[in-house]
């Protein structure tokens, strides 16, 4: 009995893990990730089934419709590997069970993967590295690449192994409270960080002049004497020192005090304009306006604002 037992080797599991990186390679509108899923399962099929009939059946049941978050396919792969292994050894696991587990897990898991990976980890890491990049730090793309892939590869391996070990139990396990907590925690962090980013990395400068008043002569540093002295070649160090002292004392060198619209807005709350713009964008997105049109629209706003001298 022990001699005949079919078992997936560690090497098989590693091959499946590597192949799961290519899950979406043949993404299509009909059955979505079906072929990529079969591609990832093939090392196991090769190991467990030796006759042609068995292989045809295995390929067919793994070419059914499948779609989830590409990273959350790994725990499902793990469970399916365990199921196929038991089936190859004679356990009574039919096609319905195998597809049922796949379909049953893919929906809820996709709902976890999208907010955690696409809407939290990548924007936060991306924004952090983008700020490094804008500061001309060459490490920015390297940090992004290394950190992301370390998280991803570790996650894929850990969840695949976890799924394999848990077998069928995983479905109950995942609904047992951990996942909602992780999703909720990540969403809170994500929303908080987005709030942080809005005033920091959005540049809106309203250069429009709201007021222009002549500064009182008493408050303006008199530079004329200094200029005359310099032109006549009689500049003395004390005159320069005197000017600096006046500046330090709080006098201005400008004849006019210009207040731009931006100064007025900043005195209310810095970042107010980007926040309002964001709320408008959210409203448009809610009305199912294609984001690309919103982007085009904002470009037009930028051009018109620049042309009219409001934005700069």
């Amino acid at each position: 009995m022990a001699d005949n037992e079919k078992k997936l080797t560690k090497r098989d599991l590693i091959t499946v893990w590597w192949r799961s990186f290519f899950l979406q390679g043949s993404w299509n509108y009909e059955r979505m990730q079906n072929l990529g899923w079969a591609y990832a399962m093939i090392p196991a099929i090769r190991r467990l089934y030796k006759t042609k009939e068995e292989r045809i059946d295995a390929l067919k049941r793994h070419l059914e419709f499948f779609n989830t978050h590409p990273y959350l396919a790994s725990p499902i792969l793990g469970v399916e590997l365990a199921l196929e292994e038991q089936r190859a050894n004679g356990a009574d696991i039919n096609d319905e069970t195998i597809n049922g587990v796949k379909v049953g897990m893919m929906g809820p898991l996709a709902g976890v993967g999208d907010p955690v990976f696409w809407a939290t980890i990548r924007p936060v890491l991306g924004a952090f590295c983008a700020s490094l990049a804008l500061a001309q730090n060459v490490l920015a793309p390297i940090i992004f690449f290394v950190v992301w892939n370390a998280i991803r590869m570790g996650f894929l391996w850990y969840t695949q192994s976890f799924g394999y070990k848990q077998g069928v139990n995983i479905t109950q396990d995942l609904s047992g409270g951990m996942l909602p907590k992780i999703t909720q925690g990540a969403s809170i962090l994500g929303m908080f960080v987005l709030g942080v980013l809005v005033p920091r990395w959005t540049t809106m400068n309203f250069v429009l002049e709201v007021s222009k008043v002549k500064n009182q002569a008493a408050n303006v540093v008199d530079l004329n004497k200094l200029t005359d002295a310099a032109n006549n070649g009689k500049l003395h160090v004390d005159q320069v020192r005197n000017v600096i002292d006046q500046v330090v004392a709080g006098k201005t060198v400008d004849t006019f005090k210009v207040t731009t619209l931006q100064d007025t807005l900043n005195s209310l709350l810095p970042g107010l304009a980007p926040l309002l713009l964001l709320l408008i964008v959210l409203w448009l997105l809610k009305r199912k306006v294609n984001p690309i049109w919103i982007i085009f629209g904002l470009f037009i706003v930028g051009i018109l604002g620049y042309w009219a001298g409001i934005l700069g």
């Binding site: 924007p123 987005l194 980013l197 809005v198 990395w201 959005t202 540049t203 809106m204 400068n205 980007p274 713009l277 964001l278 964008v281 959210l282 997105l285 984001p291 919103i294 982007i295 904002l298 470009f299 706003v301 930028g302 051009i303 604002g305 620049y306 934005l311 700069g312």
Partner: peptide, 13 residues
């Protein structure tokens, strides 16, 4: 260039 400064709000949105 001006629009490039605030186009990110669509990404945030």
């Amino acid at each position: 260039g001006v629009a490039g400064g605030f186009i990110v709000v669509v990404g945030y949105g």
